[in-house]
């Protein structure tokens, strides 16, 4: 009984996160796309937990790896978006990005 319930719930959860795919397609900003992927990531972890409860305990190990690497794509995104791809938005922001922004204004 419970196994069928959890599998059904996992299916509904998949439908829920499928709706977030729209946000990846539409954007408009890169951050929007990234956060929709994050939503699908945490939804995916929840799906593994439900599948584990539905009678496949090994699913939890996949959930564990997904959880451990949940923020990896976000870190990669932040890096790629940063100064020369090797910075940190907080560091860029505090020092020379401000100079960069001033330059940008001068060009306008």
């Amino acid at each position: 009984m419970m196994a069928a319930w959890f599998t059904g719930l996992a299916a509904l959860l998949l439908l829920t996160i499928a709706a977030a795919l729209w946000r990846i397609w539409r954007g408009p900003t890169a951050a929007d796309r990234m956060m929709a992927a994050q939503l699908i990531g945490s939804g995916g972890v929840a799906v593994t937990l439900l599948l584990a409860a539905a009678g496949q305990p090994a699913a939890r190990d996949v959930g564990l790896v997904l959880a451990l690497l949940a923020a990896f794509a976000a870190v990669g995104f932040v890096k790629a978006a940063s100064h020369r791809g090797a910075g940190d938005p907080e560091a860029d922001d505090a020092s020379d990005a401000r100079a960069g922004r001033a330059e940008g204004r001068a060009h306008d």
Binding site: I40, G41, G44, V47, T48, L51, Q56, A58, A59, D61, V62, V65, L66, L69, F72, A73, V75, G76, K79
Partner: peptide, 29 residues
Amino acid sequence: LLVALAWLRLGAVDVGLAEAAIGAGLTGV
């Protein structure tokens, strides 16, 4: 990420683990 779930459904947990780590982790970066 979704393919990792698919491997899980096919009973190939080892492949699912590799796909989760490679597909959703390293390849993204």
